[in-house]
Design a binder for these strands. Structure first.
Lengths: 229, 229
DNA sequence: TAGTGGTCTAGACCACTGA
DNA sequence: CAGTGGTCTAGACCACTAC
């Protein structure tokens, strides 16, 4: 069998996990490793490059490759569409439009979306249910200048997230997570008490430098976002 | 100039962002793109593979490469050491050990760390301050069987996270984020009121399949975890 | 079963940077 | 300035899978 980059990567990972290579330790260079494993340098390069991408090792020209002092530095979270998130849990998904208005952009939002005073925005409030129980409260603002036909779109049966995803080609985004205390409106919709701690994700999306939408997703009480790394 | 994989990647990204390639659309195969860009197939392959890693496109043998319907599906969060997190904000960092006990593992924790009944664990409670204000409350359990000398370690001046990172070679971990209501102890330490919503990260770490530590990091009121993608 | 991506190779040149 | 990683190439074979 030929030696694959996965073989090399797994072996290097094993050496790090087993303590043969200590944090801060210097790994052999690519040429030496290629010889040791009996493969091409490009194979070793790909293995080590992926370890560097994952934050396990640190590479510098001339200085070589070292095991990172703080080995694990990042985690990836999938940001699923809520319908898929609920379906993946084996629950029934239901969607409801709570409110839809076109209004002049509020002051607090104007800076966030880079809009001019008095410009109109579309404001949507939606609920997502899992097995009939409240799952997520969606509070969304959309810039109709960027999104063609959004004013005429019918969100009574399909959520705006899925609609936007199909309509817009590609975006940059900023997302932040926090804990908030439920106000009466949130409490009513999510079936908890005012003051309860709720998990919230807030995301702003841009298309070619222009703000498209700001959305606040507030989850039912007790929600956890989990990942492994 | 020779065409680099970054050139190819940037051009493909631009075509997707500008709407030339629509969600669900099929990209040309690697051979055709290599010809179009005047480079080797391996160059195109690397560009498209990275786009796939980032969740922009989806690749399948025989079926080709398509723009993802939901273009962005994951976000990466850096998981900094709290001292670096605070220093990065330009604030002064201060650490304090609140409590340290060696005790038999509580029932609720036994399953989480795969321990036998009656086994001893080290329980640490620490506070991290930014510019003298409470920043993070750390509640940590450590399995002393896996971590040599942890019982004798002095955590009065250095936090257990930094100690562990320097001591252990590498680990797997599971992390989850949630919102919790402050109990009186948390409220006292974090300078808020009981019942306030607080952001919490909970992480379990394994070394070669054995549980090392479970830590709950509860942040001061109003904390946000943010990332761009 | 044919088309597409997945990967390895051997060699080459280049860019950065630490000693 | 010499050592290390970064990348490209041209060709090859293979693995998967949609048709």
């Amino acid at each position: 069998m030929t030696v694959t980059f996965k073989d090399v990567k797994a072996d290097l990972l094993d050496q790090i996990a087993s303590g043969v290579m200590r944090p801060g330790g210097l790994l052999p260079n690519e040429i030496d490793l290629a010889e040791r494993y009996g493969c091409a340098r490009a194979t070793v390069n790909r293995a080590m490059r992926e370890l560097a991408d994952e934050g396990i090792v640190e590479r510098k020209r001339k200085a070589g490759t070292r095991v990172r002092m703080a080995p694990i530095r990042q985690a990836r979270f999938s940001i699923p569409i809520v319908r898929e998130e609920i379906a993946a849990q084996g629950a029934d998904y239901r969607y409801a439009l709570v409110d839809r208005t076109v209004q002049a952009v509020p002051d607090w939002l104007r800076g966030r979306l880079d809009l001019n005073p008095g410009q109109d925005v579309l404001h949507l409030v939606c609920m997502h249910y899992a097995d009939g129980m409240p799952y997520q409260y969606e509070d969304r603002w959309i810039n109709p200048e960027i999104v063609p036909h959004v004013i005429e779109a019918d969100f009574s049966t399909t959520g705006p997230n899925e609609w936007l995803v199909a309509e817009l080609p590609f975006s940059n985004a900023e997302i932040s997570f926090s804990a908030v205390e439920a106000d009466q409106d949130l409490a009513d919709h999510l079936g908890c008490s005012a003051g309860n701690a709720l998990f919230r994700a807030e995301r702003t999306t841009w298309l070619q430098g222009k703000a498209v939408t700001l959305v606040r997703l507030t989850y039912r009480r007790g929600h956890r976002m989990t990942t492994q790394y």
